[in-house]
Design a protein around this nucleic acid. Structure first.
Length: 539
RNA sequence: GGCGGGAUAGCUCAGCUGGCUAGAGCACGGGAAUCAUAAUCCUGGGGUCGGGGGUUCAAGUCCCUCUCCCGCUACCA
């Protein structure tokens, strides 16, 4: 708890993951990105709620369970646990984990449904289309091909038949203009910008009403008053974001994290599901006369060694194996650092090894080690004294580095606002490089003989810089940052951003106190690939 | 086909409303230093800024055109 922990509410969510999926690096990516955001905002004094969970309904789950000869709920229980385990493996700081088969969620969905119905936004009609039993999917007329006997075939080659079933509809078309107006008024609703443009032109191109119930299967949330129907995926899945806030109770967390004025909710999603989050979801909410989230950010996909990840190739990577191989902090860092958030990127051994060694080990890890071990050997193992000086060259050099440290937080905040994680880390490493350059230029090992006071000042300045870096990098590499702060003897309650919220003046009120005894330094970011480092990869 | 976004040093990319000799990181060459995780620092290489044309005193930066690449073009989680 820092003294400034009252900057307001912040709500961040991952998508709920489909229980039929095996957790892979894509899931890890979204979840880590959300976690970094949650940690950053907490450290910055916000009241944060961070939600993740699993999506458990649908025909595929029912079928998978039937194939195994177990109840769908049993399958969900087992598979949902995989995602909980993943969160644990990744050091995720989520405040809640929602499952769509939970009672609270079923209640919330039904309440939302009734509200839509009361507002005249649900109508009963017929859903008709070409259905391929083998694929369990409907296809458009245009997607179909003709078989050798003139019969219609799905793109997969499966035969299709014309199927009509009773279905409830949501009049999405009616919301087209209001959605466009909303986008116009909230240009930051969707990130990155390219996705905003996509959604905008999609909506502008004309919307069709959507089917929101099914009768072909029963593994879903029953439609109130007509249990023959279950709600169809998106109305079920999207509602999770407000279920977790206690909806239909609109006081409490709903009021706090889902307000009409100054919305605070941010949905992180993969680019495959932006339409549901940026078109359907706002339309549902508007129709229900509920507030909207603040922003939806769609990230890209990872390829692996240049190859697309796919079930058929079987090259999806198990995040747990990555954590074991590279270390958790290293994996988190790499995923956030390697590509601009929103772009696609490639996960390769060479790339992650390069990042770990050149940035974490050589630049940052070595900076800390060279300074701390120098102090341990030459500074009595205590935080040195920053001596005043009248030498202009010294003043400028010191002030420059301290000034850069003081500016870092604001720069990072700006980037976090737009989820440009790579820029946050770039800003941090600019300071790391500046600090390394400062060590070389000031050369404390030479000052040891010629000017011990100056040596102390230089070391103090470096420690204070490292303190800033360690505090601000916590969201990305939590456990290494913790070790580093331990080595700087920073009390555990003085590690929030409040303590690097610096004034314009040279001296920060929370700067390191001279004379404090420091523990024996040990490396926090070992090089990857060094035989010596093999034991310490967890950093 | 339509709409949108790209094509800049070996690699990954920055370059807002046009303006000094086009930048960063990584990789590579040279030098310095030796506190440190054989880490660090300095420095260099000179890339037709996809091709062509145009506007302008001045264009990666605006206009036209050509080539190539990517995304979206719905009810699939």
């Amino acid at each position: 708890m820092s003294p400034n922990n009252n900057k307001g509410a912040f709500y961040v969510t991952t998508p709920i993951y489909y229980v039929n999926d095996k957790p892979h690096v894509g899931h890890a990516y979204t979840t880590i990105a959300a976690d970094v955001l949650a940690r950053f905002k907490r450290l910055d004094g916000y009241d944060v709620k961070f939600l993740t969970g699993t999506d458990e309904h649908g025909q595929k789950v029912a079928k998978a369970a039937a194939d195994k000869g177990i109840e769908p709920q049993a399958l969900c229980d087992a598979n949902s646990q995989n995602f909980r385990d993943l969160a644990k493996t990744l050091g995720i700081s989520n405040d809640d984990f929602i499952r769509t088969t939970e009672e609270r969620h079923i209640k919330a969905c039904q309440a939302l449904w009734k509200r839509l119905e009361d507002n005249g936004s649900i109508t009963l009609g017929k859903y008709a289309g070409w259905y391929a039993v083998r694929d369990e999917a409907f296809y458009d007329e245009g997607e179909l091909t003709k078989g050798p006997n003139g019969e219609k075939l799905a793109p997969s080659g499966a035969p299709v038949e014309w199927v009509e079933e009773e279905s409830y509809f949501f009049p999405l078309k009616e919301w087209q203009e209001r959605l466009l107006k909303f986008y116009d008024e909230n240009p930051d609703f969707i990130g990155p910008k390219s996705r905003f443009n996509e959604i905008y032109s999609f909506v502008k191109g004309g919307l069709q009403d959507i089917s929101i119930s099914r009768t072909a299967f029963s593994w879903g949330v029953p439609v109130p008053g007509n249990p023959k129907h279950v709600m169809y995926v998106w109305i079920d899945a999207l509602t999770n974001y407000i279920t977790a806030l206690g909806y239909p109770d609109e006081s409490g967390e709903m009021a706090k994290f889902w307000p009409e004025q100054n919305p605070v909710a941010l949905h992180l999603v993969g680019k495959d599901i932006i339409r549901f989050h940026c078109v359907y979801w706002p339309a549902f909410l508007m129709a229900a006369k509920l507030p909207l989230p603040k922003r939806v950010f769609a990230h890209g996909w990872w390829t692996v060694e240049g190859q697309k990840m796919s079930k058929s190739l079987g090259n999806a990577i198990d995040p747990t194996a990555l954590v074991e191989k590279y270390g958790l902090d290293q994996l988190r860092f790499f995923l956030m650092r390697e590509i601009p958030f929103g772009n696609d990127g490639d996960f390769s051994e060479a790339a992650i090894a390069g990042r770990i060694n050149s940035e974490l080990a050589n630049a940052l890890g070595n900076l800390a080690q060279r300074v701390l071990s120098f102090i341990a050997k030459n500074g009595g193992g205590k935080i040195p004294v920053s001596h005043s000086t009248s030498d202009a060259a010294y003043l400028i050099a010191d002030a420059d580095l301290i000034h850069k440290s003081h500016e870092l937080l604001d720069h990072c905040r700006e980037h976090i606002k737009r989820q440009t994680y790579g820029e946050v880390l770039e800003a941090i490493f600019e300071l790391v490089r500046a600090a390394n350059a400062y060590v070389d230029i000031q050369a404390p090992w030479a000052l040891k003989k010629t000017n011990p006071d100056r040596m102390e000042t230089v070391l103090w300045t470096l420690l204070e810089t490292i303190r800033h870096i360690a505090i601000i990098i916590q969201p990305f590499t939590p456990s290494a940052a913790e070790k580093l702060l331990d080595q700087l003897a920073v009390p555990s309650h003085e590690r929030t951003f409040f303590y690097i919220e610096d004034p314009k003046e040279f001296a920060s009120p929370h700067q390191l106190k001279s004379g404090t005894t420091l523990p024996t330094p040990t490396g926090v970011f070992p090089r990857y690939g060094d035989p010596k480092a093999a034991a310490g990869k967890g950093a």
